[in-house]
Write a protein that binds this DNA or RNA. Structure first.
Lengths: 79, 79
DNA sequence: GAATTTATAGCGTTGCCCCCGCTGTTAAAT
DNA sequence: ATTTAACAGCGGGGGCAACGCTATAAATTC
């Protein structure tokens, strides 16, 4: 069975997936593999994979980290 | 004793504080007390207080929630 | 088919966030 | 002055999800 999500929860889930895609796109544009970026950022490679695939909701601290190492300004929320 | 922070950790900490301030400013601009906003967002008031004061790093899911209820587009990181 | 890259799963640790309560400040009002 | 109330700061116990780590396998590219 699938639980109903409120409009807010839908937007949150939606943004999580969009953010993962955005991180992947920018990472590839910068020419990094997940492993290379992970090493630069000093985080675990599996974590990047999970984030890009929206497997869990990351903290803002982590998003700041991506912003620094990818040199990209993320927006919450883009309209 | 005070631990040394890397440049990245400094930026993260810095952004955490700036974000808290920004949330407070926008909240007040919208005319909400912490309690009123907490009720609208269905989260705990003390959580808002702690976030505004940078007591912990929030998840992106929560930042999305603030973005929705304050109708404001947060940037990570603003340069 | 070898090499590289990525997805995913399990388990352990950390810390976000909930919830409650107490304190301190400020303002109103008589 | 003291009450009353609105508002914010702060502390702590507890639950659960983020994230680290390791390993395996799938997908992609050569």
């Amino acid at each position: 069975m699938k639980a109903e999500l409120s409009a807010t929860e839908e937007q949150i889930k939606d943004y999580r997936l969009k953010l993962g895609d955005k991180i992947r796109i920018v990472r590839e544009k910068r020419g990094y593999s997940q492993e290379q970026l992970a090493e630069k950022m000093d985080i675990n490679r599996s974590t990047i994979s999970k984030i890009e695939n929206g497997k869990f909701g990351i903290t803002v601290d982590y998003l700041v980290r991506f912003s620094i190492f990818l040199d990209y300004e993320f927006k919450v929320i883009e309209r």
